[in-house]
Design a protein around this nucleic acid. Structure first.
Length: 377
RNA sequence: GUGGAUAUGGCGCAGUUGGCUAGCGCGCCAGAUUGUGGCUCUGGAGGCCGAGGGUUCGAGUCCCUCUAUCCACC
């Protein structure tokens, strides 16, 4: 259940309670696509750095190790030793990201597995069945995420189909939740708004899906190549048309600046590969911009990534020079350090955002943060 | 000491019967990355082609001398 604590402008401070515990929002969900946070980060590490909820992926887990196996082993929570909420993405994004390997029809999508090339069919029912087997806390609707540059002629029928798929997802989930051998009989379904960067389609679709009375709604199809201006314009347009008494989740976003802008527009949930992927590439976040630890200028830099940072890496005193060396030497430890720091950075920023909203000084906080990012180092 | 082979950016190599600003991989220096393939992509810097002489309109490519390294045999 979503419970609003307070607002500051359009920014919302709330809690979202689930069978796996309560999430304080706005929140960043750490991305663990294959039931693993890439970079040798354990679920124990996640707790240490303040992660409240994490995300895994339907398509990827279906391909390997297989959702039937995960179910047999007691579900995702037991499998990866994580007792807090898990949100599973539906596989809809893979309709977009694995575009070269798939074919879309009304019934669903046929993929060629990126692992071994074998043919996989996934439609709304299959996606719900897989997510039910995984027994995640929140299941995402199976949607199509059209490319940013798609034309209105492409987007309109795509969005209409995504709506029909959502209706099918809801019916299938209700059926699955009532089966005796379902692990998580309280699994929740979040709907996904689409419509590219066309405001009228976005709003119309938001109004339609809102009527389905789902426990949460997300905004998909952004941060797929459009400009930041387009992203913020669509958020301005569509967030007011999603239920205020439900959480709003902006999928796949984004940079710290993106998140601040979206929180200001009323978004509660975020996820993004940036902190982990950038960490793996030696890019680390600070309050004064992003650092690329591969850069030669850090060769003799004996500072920690950021003075005063509470992450395990900075607290232990590992220097930029040392982490740069580990990066250059392709040591796993380097990835781990950078990913841990970045995940802490994101989760910590969300905690600061929540506090700022509670104290009704979010605008001031956001301004301070954005100015810091622009300073660089 | 004798015979053979090789010398091209930091390293490993391509360079066609001599032909226009000498390429490639790795490394190096930067940049991209938004519901994740630790991948990938995009730029950039860096070479008097071992040294000296010769043939030629023109030599990294051919000839001579020297030097260095490697391999065989003494």
């Amino acid at each position: 259940m979503y419970k609003l604590i307070t607002t500051d402008g359009k920014a919302k401070r709330a809690t979202f309670s689930t069978p796996h515990g309560t999430v304080e929002t706005p929140v960043f969900m750490n991305v663990g696509t294959v039931a693993a946070i890439k970079g040798a980060v354990s679920t124990g590490d996640l707790k240490e750095i303040g992660c409240q909820i994490q995300l895994s992926n339907t398509y990827h887990l279906h391909v390997r190790p297989g959702d039937a196996l995960v179910k047999k082993l007691g579900g995702l929570h037991k499998f990866m030793v994580w007792d807090r909420p898990i949100l599973t993405d539906s596989g809809g994004f893979q309709v977009y990201s694995l575009a070269s390997l798939r074919k879309i029809k009304e019934e669903g999508v046929t993929f060629n597995s990126h692992i071994d090339g074998r043919k996989i069919f996934m439609g709304p029912e299959e996606s719900m069945q897989i997510q039910s087997n995984l027994a995640s806390t929140i299941a995402m609707a199976f949607d199509e995420c059209p490319p940013a540059l798609a034309s209105e002629q492409y987007i309109r029928p795509s969005v209409e189909r995504t709506y029909r798929w959502l209706v099918r997802c809801k019916a299938e989930m209700e059926r699955l939740n009532s089966l005796p051998d379902t692990i998580n009989k309280e699994q929740m379904l979040f709907g996904i708004n689409q419509g590219g960067v066309i405001e009228s389609i976005r709003i119309e679709h938001a109004q339609m899906i809102s009527k389905l009375d789902l426990p949460g709604y997300s905004i998909g199809g952004l941060a797929v190549g459009e400009s930041h201006e387009d992203m913020y314009r669509i958020l301005d347009a569509v967030v007011p048309h999603l239920p205020k008494e439900k959480p709003t989740y902006l999928m796949g976003v984004g940079t710290p600046a993106n998140i601040l802008e979206a929180v200001e527009r009323g978004v509660d949930f975020f996820d993004c590969v940036y902190p982990s992927r950038n960490g793996r590439h030696g890019h680390v976040y600070t309050n004064h911009g992003k650092l690329n630890l591969f850069n030669a200028k850090y060769e003799e830099d004996t500072h920690v990534i950021e003075e005063g940072c509470g992450c395990p890496v900075c607290r232990a005193g590992y220097t930029r020079a040392y982490i740069r060396h580990l990066m250059k030497a392709k040591e796993m430890l380097a990835l781990r350090f950078c990913v841990l720091h970045n995940l802490y950075y994101y989760n910590n920023m969300m905690a600061e955002i929540r506090q700022a909203i509670e104290e009704h000084r979010f605008a001031e906080y956001k301004k301070m943060r954005l100015e810091g990012f622009n300073e660089g180092e």
